[in-house]
């Protein structure tokens, strides 16, 4: 499909597809990017603008032709109207009418092209890149939910717990205000702000205590068993009149 200079530019339906057009048999595709990302040709409005300007100048010349016989006094007080006056008046009227018609036709051409360009701009659908990105953003959570894998933010939130003291950013209206800063008015009844009830501090060593409690219990049981065994051995050695082998009686 070939465009002419008088065609209203727009999107080629074949170029709208992101793939290579079927017309390129064996040749490299000319549209490597989707059509919305190509530079759209501007509307061919310059040529009819030239036509409008030329027609308007011709209108001025026609008006001058109507005034020239009276401005230069072709008649020279003659009784009859000279032929040059008639020629100028008739030519002036014809030129004025024809130039006005030509200007209107060029203006109509400009209006049609602008209207066609606006209609094409309105008929352009969502670019494939935005459509693909929208599908991707909406499809990823669904796929994660189907696979049963929790999302990373949810895992982090469950592992770290809620933020006890979140840092809140000031509102944009206050931080980016263009008006000069005004000091706050003095409070007529200054009173100290009420202290908010602070939460009870949590025991940071509670978890460690829970972890070490069974170890301490096991160690205590082991020591007790060793004590009993030692007492038992000492009792047997005292009855035989010799100290127990491999050890000594503790002082206490």
């Amino acid at each position: 499909m070939t465009n002419t200079a008088t065609d209203a530019p727009g999107l080629d339906p074949a170029a709208l597809s992101a793939t290579a057009p079927a017309e390129t048999d064996g040749a490299l595709p000319t549209a490597l990017w989707p059509a919305p990302y190509q530079a759209e040709p501007p509307l061919p409005l310059l040529a009819p603008y030239f036509g409008v300007v030329a027609a308007m100048l011709c209108m001025l010349i026609g008006g001058w032709l109507l005034l020239a016989p009276f401005a230069f006094d072709y008649r020279h007080a003659a009784a009859a109207v000279p032929q040059s006056t008639t020629v100028d008046l008739v030519s002036g009227v014809v030129v004025l009418a024809l130039a006005a018609l030509t200007a209107a036709l060029f203006a109509g051409c400009i209006a049609r092209r602008l209207r066609a360009g606006r209609q094409e701009a309105e008929s352009v659908e969502l670019p494939p890149f935005e459509a693909a990105s929208g599908d991707a953003t909406s499809a990823e959570p669904a796929a994660a939910a189907e696979q049963g894998t929790p999302e990373v933010p949810a895992m982090l939130e469950s592992a770290l717990g809620p933020d006890p003291d979140p840092i809140l950013a000031p509102p944009l209206e206050e931080s980016f205000s263009l008006e000069p800063h005004k000091p706050p008015l003095a409070d007529p009844d200054p009173s100290p702000p009420e202290a908010e009830p602070r939460p009870a501090p949590q025991d940071p060593g509670g978890g460690l205590l829970d972890l070490l409690a069974p170890l301490v219990a096991a160690l205590t049981a082991d020591l007790n068993s060793r004590e009993r065994e030692r007492d038992h051995d000492y009792g047997n050695g005292a009855s035989r009149g010799s100290a127990p082998s491999g050890g000594h009686r503790p002082d206490a």
């Binding site: 499909m1 999107l11 080629d12 339906p13 036709l105 060029f106 051409c109």
Partner: peptide, 13 residues
């Protein structure tokens, strides 16, 4: 090739 309207050339102008 398509349904795109084409502005005709201003032949009369």
């Amino acid at each position: 090739g398509g349904s795109r309207p084409r502005a005709g050339a201003p032949i009369a102008a």
